[in-house]
C-alpha cells in the first residue's frame, strides 16, 4: 500500500479514535478484560458505530494475513476482533457484560489468550 492510500485510510477512520482507545487491543485476554467491564450503553455505542461499516472493514482486512497487515490497519483489525467478541453482548445478551445464566468467564482460561490475534 503506497503512502497516499495509507494516508487516505488514516483520514477515513479518524472518527474511530475513541473506539480504538477503549476497545482495540491485540490479545484476547486484554479484550476480555475490557468487555467484562463494559456497560450496556458502551456496547450499544460500539455496535452502532461498527456494524454499519463492518463490511467495509472486513473488505480492507481481506488482503493480508494478520501478521502482514499494513501498520495503518493494525488498529482497525484489533477493533474488528474486539467487535467480533463484543457483538453478541449487544445482539443477544441485552447489553450484559456477562453471558446470562453462565459459568464465571473469569474462571475460563483462553490458552491462546495472551498471544496477539
Amino acid at each position: 500500500m503506497d503512502k497516499t492510500s495509507s494516508d487516505a485510510i488514516t483520514s477515513r477512520f479518524s472518527d474511530l479514535s475513541p473506539l480504538l482507545e477503549k476497545w482495540a487491543f491485540p490479545a484476547e485476554n486484554q479484550r476480555s478484560a475490557v468487555r467484562w467491564g463494559a456497560s450496556a450503553s458502551e456496547f450499544e455505542e460500539f455496535y452502532s458505530k461498527m456494524m454499519p461499516r463492518l463490511g467495509e472493514f472486513l473488505e480492507l482486512l481481506s488482503h493480508n494475513p494478520p501478521n502482514k497487515l499494513p501498520p495503518e490497519l493494525h488498529g482497525i483489525y484489533q477493533l474488528v476482533c474486539a467487535f467480533a467478541e463484543a457483538a453478541p453482548h449487544h445482539e443477544l445478551y441485552k447489553g450484559s457484560a456477562e453471558v446470562p445464566h453462565s459459568f464465571d468467564p473469569r474462571r475460563f482460561r483462553a490458552l491462546h489468550g495472551n498471544d496477539p490475534s
Binding site: L58, E59, H63, L69, C81
Partner: peptide, 16 residues
C-alpha cells in the same frame, strides 16, 4: 486463516 478478515471471523465464531 489466509487473511485478517478470516481470522476475525474465526474469533467471532469461537467467541459464540
Amino acid at each position: 486463516p489466509a487473511t485478517a478478515a478470516e481470522k476475525a471471523a474465526q474469533i467471532h465464531v469461537s467467541a459464540l
